[in-house]
Amino acid sequence: MHPSYGSCELTWFRIYRCASLLPYPVPFYLRPAAWYIQKQYMKLVKDQWVIGHAMNMQEKINKPYSDWGRVSYDPPKGLKIILPSNSHNDFPFSVVPDHIVSCGPIVRVAKPVEETDPDLAAWLKRRPTVFINLGSHVIHDKNATSELSAAVHSLLDEARKAKQEIQVLWKMNKSAGGQEEGQKSAVSSAMNGHADNDRIRIVDWLETEPISILRSENVICSVNHGGANSYFEAVRYVTLRPTCPPA
């Protein structure tokens, strides 16, 4: 362990041990949960990645703690923290320290969709597009897939009634454990005729980067899971950006 890391460890633990959201005094029936959370916190304090991160930060800024939260109000002299957000799309903080600079949204550079997937680029140009992309790790079961499919069905129906030309691109991750047929049947049942329509394209993988799709200027709504990249990319290029965080 780093010779001066002891105080860093204790400070880190003091900051985070109150984040369980359990009521206090802790009711008897929640004491097992409190015990479990305490054990997990102790594991984090001894985690080699956490220790390495703390040591690296301590060496860089000459402060005996590993918490980025504390750097926000007790920074070393001359430190500037660049945030990938901006005041218009972040929480409405009443006080922002001078050393914190919001200059976002900061997004990655990627090749245009015309270069990486010409077929998709041509399809996107047909109509204004709603892009549903809930990240790489969200896998819906049959029920959740059915609910989202029904929402897409309703959207397309309402657009047709209003005589609005829209289409939907939905990146739906394959279900694990051989549940793919259940996913497909849920989509087919809920979509009720729309599934084979050229106004909806459902894929389990994108050959192009999601940001390239957003930059195509054909996406009018980005439905995402609220991950940092998805959020900032949508903020940068799309007006409507509803969030569906995973349960």
Rank of each mutant, 00 (worst) to 15 (best):
L155G: 01
S136R: 11
S146H: 13
V138W: 10
T116V: 09
K184W: 13
I132L: 14
A186M: 11
V138N: 07
N133V: 01
Q183M: 11
K161P: 01
A162L: 02
T129D: 02
A122R: 10
R127V: 00
E114G: 07
E180S: 10
S185R: 11
K171M: 12
S188M: 11
Q164A: 11
R127Y: 02
S154Q: 12
V152Q: 07
V130N: 09
P128S: 06
S188G: 06
A150F: 08
S149P: 02
T145Q: 12
A176D: 04
V130P: 03
P118M: 04
Q183S: 07
D117E: 11
E181C: 03
R160A: 13
L120T: 01
D117S: 13
T116I: 07
K125P: 00
T129C: 14
A121Y: 04
D141G: 15
D117C: 08
N133Q: 01
L120R: 05
A151K: 13
A122G: 05
S185V: 06
V187M: 15
K125V: 02
Q183A: 05
L124F: 02
D119N: 09
D157N: 14
T116A: 10
G178N: 05
K163E: 11
H140M: 11
A144P: 05
L124W: 00
E147F: 06
D117M: 12
K184C: 08
K142I: 14
D119Y: 06
